[in-house]
Computed example of a mutant assay.
Amino acid sequence: MKKKYFWSIVVVLAITGYILYIDLKATPIKQLEVAAQGLNWTMLGLVVGLMISSYFCEAMILKILAQRKDEPKRSFWSYFRVPIIQTLFNAITPMSTGGQPAQLAALIQVGIEGGRATSLLLMKFIIYQIVVFAAYLSTIIFGFHLVVTKFATLSFFIVIGLTIHVVSTLFLLAIMFAYNSTKKATNKLLDFLVRFIKTDKIEHLRQNMITKIDTFYGESQKLKQEKSKLIKVILLTVLQLLFFYSIPYGILLALNIKASWLAVTQMNIMIIMFMAIIPLPGASGGAEYSFQTLFSTFILNSGGLVLGMFIWRFVTYFLGIMLGLVGWIIKPAKKQNTRKG
């Protein structure tokens, strides 16, 4: 692994460790011991199972999208290692920028040609963005009171996170359903920017953007033609997100705390919106702070809060790093496609 990624892990460990140290200093050891002794280990196992099930769904999505008559039969591990490698590189790069290239590399390693691998990932990305967009929008519509009452200090950042996602998803939908108009609008916008930015830079940007618009449009048309695949993948994506979004609720159950699944999940989705704009590897610092904001609503003693935060950080972050390292090291057999494209 590159040295810069190693240092990213060190940064996250240092920040997480420091925050835990501050919390532990302010937390009586007796409270922590009581919280640990009262843990529901069955539910704790379920929490880990939720995270792994989320990876399983993503692997199934890739397997379904890759299916075609001439596709060689690959082991399930060939697909399962893709989301865990993505998680590893999302975790150790600022704003999760390393996940997409890592997925592409993982697919190429098992014999899927680069262009086809890019196509599969684009199809998965389009569906994922649309499903996440629906989750974010429904949460804001039906859970806006939580922003006002529970997340007043984070509300500005939550709105920024939502705005970024809304704009990017609407742009994708515009490409899918209004291809020519979107292309013309993009060119007009770039023509306007020429007044403020050097022409060569704008032309380079234009070439990249038009290429991406064409690629997205081509993949969206493929999705429309394969309706049975599309339905299966949408359902699996919904399931994948339900597993992931339900992890905080599972942690509360592990701590023997009763709460509303809907309320906890809505709050968790808002926190994920906030974490999306933190420019540090693993959203360090902001992740821990936002967790405390969420769980302090339900966990009244500091011992349970610190323990809960540690479990959440381990399951959603460090577990992914460990599994991702295993996935990167253990490579399945490489099987070439019988045709390319």
Rank of each mutant, 00 (worst) to 15 (best):
residue 159 V to C: 06
residue 188 K to S: 09
residue 171 F to A: 14
residue 184 K to I: 13
residue 187 N to Q: 11
residue 137 L to V: 09
residue 190 L to A: 05
residue 189 L to G: 10
residue 167 V to H: 04
residue 180 N to E: 08
residue 154 L to F: 11
residue 183 K to D: 01
residue 179 Y to F: 14
residue 179 Y to M: 02
residue 170 L to E: 04
residue 152 A to V: 08
residue 186 T to Q: 04
residue 147 V to F: 09
residue 179 Y to N: 06
residue 171 F to W: 14
residue 181 S to C: 00
residue 150 K to V: 13
residue 165 H to W: 05
residue 157 F to S: 08
residue 191 D to K: 10
residue 166 V to T: 13
residue 145 H to P: 01
residue 161 G to D: 08
residue 161 G to L: 06
residue 169 T to M: 07
residue 170 L to F: 15
residue 144 F to C: 03
residue 145 H to R: 11
residue 171 F to G: 10
residue 158 I to E: 04
residue 175 I to R: 01
residue 166 V to W: 10
residue 159 V to L: 14
residue 177 F to R: 09
residue 187 N to A: 04
residue 189 L to Y: 08
residue 161 G to I: 03
residue 186 T to N: 03
residue 157 F to L: 13
residue 167 V to T: 08
residue 181 S to N: 05
residue 145 H to G: 07
residue 146 L to I: 10
residue 174 A to I: 00
residue 142 F to H: 11
residue 179 Y to T: 00
residue 146 L to E: 10
residue 139 T to L: 03
residue 150 K to M: 10
residue 151 F to Q: 05
residue 176 M to Y: 07
residue 157 F to M: 10
residue 151 F to V: 09
residue 153 T to A: 13
residue 182 T to A: 04
residue 173 L to C: 07
residue 154 L to M: 13
residue 142 F to A: 12
residue 169 T to I: 07
residue 164 I to V: 15
residue 149 T to P: 02
residue 157 F to G: 06
residue 183 K to R: 15
residue 138 S to L: 15
residue 140 I to Y: 05
residue 169 T to H: 09
residue 147 V to R: 01
residue 187 N to T: 00
residue 167 V to I: 15
residue 187 N to I: 06
